[in-house]
Computed example of a mutant assay.
Amino acid sequence: MTMKRVIQTLLLTLALGVVASPAFADDTPAIDVNTATAEQLAQLPGIGEVKAQAIVADRKANGDYQTVQDLARVDGIGDATIEGLEGKVSF
């Protein structure tokens, strides 16, 4: 085996190890938007404090959410935010 081939094999092995490493996996449990506090919701990508408070207020006024798309009823939450929330929220 040539030195170039050995280096390529080592690099590939390292790259696969990093991808498969549990340290890089997103094991964060989904946040239930129907029971979460504003502080918990604010941790979601694209939400922040103001939108989190708006989610809680909307939930109280209009009832629970059934799908991630239902969050669009909150001002400031659009398609891009909803796309980023998929898999990170539950109902």
Rank of each mutant, 00 (worst) to 15 (best):
M3W: 08
V6I: 14
I7G: 11
Q8L: 13
L11V: 14
L11I: 13
L12I: 13
L16Y: 05
L16T: 03
G17S: 10
V18F: 10
V19A: 12
V19K: 01
V19W: 13
S21P: 02
S21A: 15
P22A: 09
A23K: 11
A25W: 09
A25C: 00
D26M: 04
T28M: 09
T28N: 15
A30R: 08
I31N: 12
D32C: 02
D32M: 04
V33I: 15
N34R: 08
N34A: 07
A38F: 01
L41I: 09
A42G: 06
Q43A: 09
L44S: 00
I47T: 06
G48Y: 01
E49A: 12
E49S: 11
Q53T: 05
I55N: 02
V56A: 03
V56N: 06
V56S: 06
A57H: 03
A57S: 13
A57E: 14
N62C: 04
N62E: 05
G63Q: 11
D64L: 10
Y65S: 12
Y65D: 09
Q66Y: 01
Q66T: 11
V68N: 09
V68H: 07
Q69F: 01
A72N: 02
V74R: 08
D75L: 03
G76W: 03
G78W: 05
G78M: 06
D79P: 12
T81G: 07
I82K: 05
G84V: 03
L85P: 06
E86P: 02
K88A: 08
K88H: 09
V89E: 07
V89P: 11
V89S: 10
V89F: 02
S90R: 15
F91S: 07
